[in-house]
């Protein structure tokens, strides 16, 4: 068995999710290799080559891969993998992997296994369905397994090695049907909702958008990302992309703080993999208390300023 890991990066640094994917690969086989496609990859390679568990790194440095267009990436990786004996091809289940990996699977005519959270054996995996409300154990009968890995379920690999790097060239025609226009990095100084260690979210109990300021001060002190329940988003308190839940973002931070959130099923589905959940709610019967490690009953307008002060 031989595993290929597709590395996600931004031509400067390697995304942490790539290191987690290497750990997942190592659980499948001792023979793990990685491929990096991009432009101007020196710093990426310098970082990546320290990864434990990698036997080899292939790099394709070409302007075609300056921006991660799925069409170019999937075609190049398919061509590369075709001539070798990989049994598994793993990508992080980030928007990068989700965009690109199913294309790779379609080119290879295999059924991708999305978002695995556990490796049972080389062909059997666990993956959450219904936003984590159920866990499916699935067995693949495909010759080559194309997989995306939920990175929060695997620790990033250690960086104590020095891995061989081989440069490859690629024969690929430029795809003229799609072009990159721009990338606007979120301006917030806060961490990303889906990768933050701490997330603080507000719900309908916040009463209006202005009151989310009460959470901001706490988020600043904790270096936390800010989120919201669907009720708060539907009420127009905060933008849609703050929504945490089954139809919003799925988060799994070390600490999730739910403020003025009753705990609707669809919200719980998006937070249940958090290590610790704390909540503040004035209704002590609210379902959120059943899912919280620490619950505080009371008026959030009174409690939030106190909390900010104590941190």
């Amino acid at each position: 068995m031989k595993v290929l890991v597709i590395i996600e990066h931004d031509n400067e640094t390697v995304k942490q999710s790539s290191f987690s994917t290497i750990t997942a690969a190592k659980e499948i086989s001792d023979s793990v290799e990685a491929i990096v496609l991009g432009q101007g990859l020196d710093s990426v390679i310098n970082e990546l080559k320290k990864s434990d568990h990698l036997k080899k790194i292939y790099k394709i440095d070409n302007e075609l891969f300056k921006n991660p267009l799925a069409e170019n990436l999937s075609n190049a990786i398919q061509k590369f993998a075709e001539g070798s004996d990989y049994t598994h091809i793993l990508s992080p289940s980030s928007t990068f992997g989700k965009n690109m990996s199913p294309k790779l699977s379609a080119l290879m005519d295999v059924q991708q296994i999305s978002d695995i959270t556990k490796i049972i054996s080389d062909d059997t995996f666990e993956r959450p369905i219904y936003a984590g409300n159920a866990i499916a154990k699935v067995k693949s009968s495909d010759q080559i397994k194309v997989i995306t890995v939920r990175s929060t379920c695997f620790e990033p690999c250690a960086l104590n090695s020095s891995v061989d790097v081989e440069s490859l060239t690629v024969n690929l025609d430029k795809n003229n049907s799609v072009s990159f226009v721009s990338y606007d990095k979120s301006k917030s100084d806060r961490p990303e909702l889906t990768s933050a260690k701490i997330v603080i979210s507000g719900g309908r109990g916040m009463q209006n958008g202005e009151n989310f300021r009460l959470l901001e001060g706490i988020a600043d002190k904790l270096g936390a990302a800010m989120g919201a329940s669907r009720a708060a988003v539907d009420a127009g308190f905060v933008p849609n992309d703050w929504q945490v839940g089954q139809t919003g973002k799925i988060v799994a931070p070390d600490l999730y703080i739910a403020v003025g959130i009753s705990g609707a099923i669809q919200h719980i589905a998006g937070i249940k993999d958090s290590k610790f959940i704390a909540c503040i709610n004035k209704d002590e019967e609210a379902p959120i208390f059943n899912f919280s490690d620490y619950g505080l009953v009371g008026d959030l307008f009174e409690l939030l300023p106190k909390l900010e002060e104590k941190l």
Partner: peptide, 22 residues
């Protein structure tokens, strides 16, 4: 191509506690 061997409940969260104050 993917056989679902079984579907399970997710691991339950252990019951939490209520705290008195901030």
């Amino acid at each position: 191509r993917l056989q679902v061997l079984e579907v399970n409940e997710p691991p339950e969260r252990k019951p939490g506690i209520k705290v008195d104050d901030v």
